[in-house]
Computed example of a mutant assay.
Amino acid sequence: MRRYQGTVYDSNRWDGFELRPGDIIIAAPPKCGTTWTQMICALLILQEPELTLPLDTLSPWIDMVTRARAEVFADLQAQSHRRFIKTHTPLDGIPSDPTVTYICVGRDPRDVALSIDHHIDNSDIDAFLKARERAAGIDGTELGPLRRQPPRPDGERNRFWQWVDDDTPSTQIGSSLRRTVEHLQTFRDAADELDVVHLHYDDLKDDLAGQMRQLAARFGIHVNEHRWPRLVQAATFGAMRSRAETTVPGGSRHWIDPAAFFNRGTSGQWRDLLDNADLARYAARVRTLASDELIDWVHREAIT
């Protein structure tokens, strides 16, 4: 497997983890709807609108270096319900198992760019680094030097283009246009070999109830009809935002404003930022990185 490594994640943490038949791996590029999909899986599997534990305890991110690997493995080993595990790692960096269901979630990369920009502004970097040090101490691992990050330019449009044009290899960066589409492509390439569910952020937004019912059927989970309204309501952005302390990754520790983790949750935010020349430039860039089939699927509006 390829190793994907950054400041707060390391795909090598999957080494030694034993999958169980029926496990669900929620594998999405950052800011494509990962936490939303985790919540949906929690509701379908546990069938209660109130979570018994924080979402990131029920569905930990194995790659995340801010929790001790030993603690994460122990939590997952103790679970008796069907497990649903988070990762932001492409398929070539995590175990490939035909007895497991993989959920790959995609979103218009232009919206991803704006969402990641807000996400960075809302991150408590000092809290992340302190948690990273604590986890390394528990696991007995030695922390390497932090990779130097390029300065963020002033202006939302300039930051958008920094994200789009960044050509850093996907194994060394948390989010960029290149990393986003390469991640999605690894799962589309394996669709004939593994049990892969492809979800699109816009489909969840437009028909949450329908998408949840389709997932339940795909998982072979029966939900009594009277439970559906409360489960769907609990999966809405508003409901998740109102319980941010238990739904956001890391709880309140890693965020300046935990509720702001769930930002606008809308699509097409880029329309207010990009003009026709920008859109043409973006289209030219994304076509150098992704197949036409993937471009058509991830962009719900045709690009030039």
Rank of each mutant, 00 (worst) to 15 (best):
R2V: 11
Y9A: 11
Y9F: 15
N12A: 14
G16T: 01
P21L: 08
P21K: 07
I25F: 00
I26K: 00
I26T: 10
W36K: 09
W36A: 06
W36T: 04
Q38P: 00
I40K: 05
E48Q: 15
A68W: 01
V72G: 01
A78Q: 14
A78S: 14
T87M: 08
G93Q: 05
I94G: 02
S96F: 01
D97T: 01
C104G: 01
C104R: 02
V105K: 03
P109M: 04
V112T: 13
A113M: 11
I116Y: 14
L129Y: 09
D139S: 04
G140E: 02
L143W: 08
R148W: 00
P150F: 08
D154E: 15
E156C: 09
E156N: 09
R157Q: 11
T168N: 10
T168H: 06
T171S: 14
S175Y: 11
L177K: 10
V181C: 12
V181L: 11
V181D: 10
L184Y: 00
F187D: 06
V196F: 01
V197H: 04
H198G: 01
H200L: 15
Y201P: 07
D202M: 08
A209D: 15
R213E: 12
F219E: 02
V223I: 15
V232E: 09
F237V: 14
A239Q: 12
E245V: 11
T247N: 11
T247I: 10
A259T: 15
N263I: 07
T266R: 14
L274S: 06
A277E: 15
D278H: 07
L279Q: 12
R285P: 08
R287H: 13
L289N: 00
A290D: 01
S291V: 07
I295R: 05
V298E: 07
T304Y: 07
